[in-house]
Every structure is written in structure tokens, then in C-alpha cells.
């Protein structure tokens, strides 16, 4: 985020505010999407890739489809989550 300069305080402040709003919206949007996919048993793929790259750089991570299918099978597999009330 650019710091407001002393000369043009007002417009910079406005830009600042816009920036903050946009960042917040983007963050909320991401969180909402992440929440919605976790609700149906799909964790965040990006988090997985970041983790896989950090811990096992030697192995290629699962691709999006394989990751999706793995969690789909797990949700309803043995010991899968049961929802009721």
C-alpha cells in the first residue's frame, strides 16, 4: 500500500481507503470460497501445493483433478464424515 504523501494528502487518503476496501473484499471473497469448498469436503488446493513444495520439493504435487477426486472419495469413504443435526 502506498503511503500518503504530504503534498497531496486528500486524494492519497482516498486511494488508500479504496485500496484497503479492495484488499478486504478480495480477502473476504477468498475466505468465502474457501469456506464453501471446505463445507463440501474440499480443502484449499493452493495451500496444499504451497505445503507440498515446502516439505517435499523432490516430488511433484497432485494435480487439481487428482486432489479433488481424492477428497471426494474420502468424504464418503470409511470413517467419512456423517452429518445430521
Amino acid at each position: 500500500m502506498p503511503r500518503p504523501s504530504l503534498q497531496a494528502k486528500e486524494p492519497a487518503d482516498n486511494a488508500d481507503l479504496l485500496c484497503v476496501c479492495r484488499d478486504a473484499l478480495v480477502r473476504w471473497g477468498k475466505d468465502a470460497r474457501r469456506t464453501a469448498s471446505l463445507m463440501v469436503g474440499q480443502p484449499d488446493y493452493e495451500v496444499y501445493v504451497a505445503h507440498a513444495e515446502a516439505t517435499h520439493p523432490d516430488q511433484p504435487p497432485l494435480d487439481r483433478t487428482a486432489f479433488f477426486r481424492l477428497h471426494e472419495a474420502r468424504r464418503f469413504g470409511a470413517g467419512g464424515a456423517f452429518r445430521c443435526c
Binding site: 475466505d31 474457501r34 469456506t35 464453501a36 471446505l38 463445507m39 480443502p43 484449499d44 495451500v47 496444499y48 501445493v49 504451497a50 505445503h51 507440498a52 516439505t55 481424492l70 477428497h71 474420502r74 464424515a81 452429518r83 445430521c84 443435526c85
Partner: peptide, 24 residues
């Protein structure tokens, strides 16, 4: 990164609520 993943609390709250809320 698969089964055990530290998840932001708001996201986890939504997941947990969706899992406990049902017909009951």
C-alpha cells in the same frame, strides 16, 4: 496438506457449522 491442514478460524467455523447443522 491433505488431512491435517491448519485452517483459518472463519473458514473452519463455516465448515464445522455446515457439518453440525441438519434436519434435527
Amino acid at each position: 496438506g491433505l488431512d491435517y491442514v491448519p485452517t483459518p478460524r472463519n473458514v473452519l467455523f463455516g465448515h464445522h457449522f455446515a457439518a453440525i447443522a441438519g434436519a434435527g
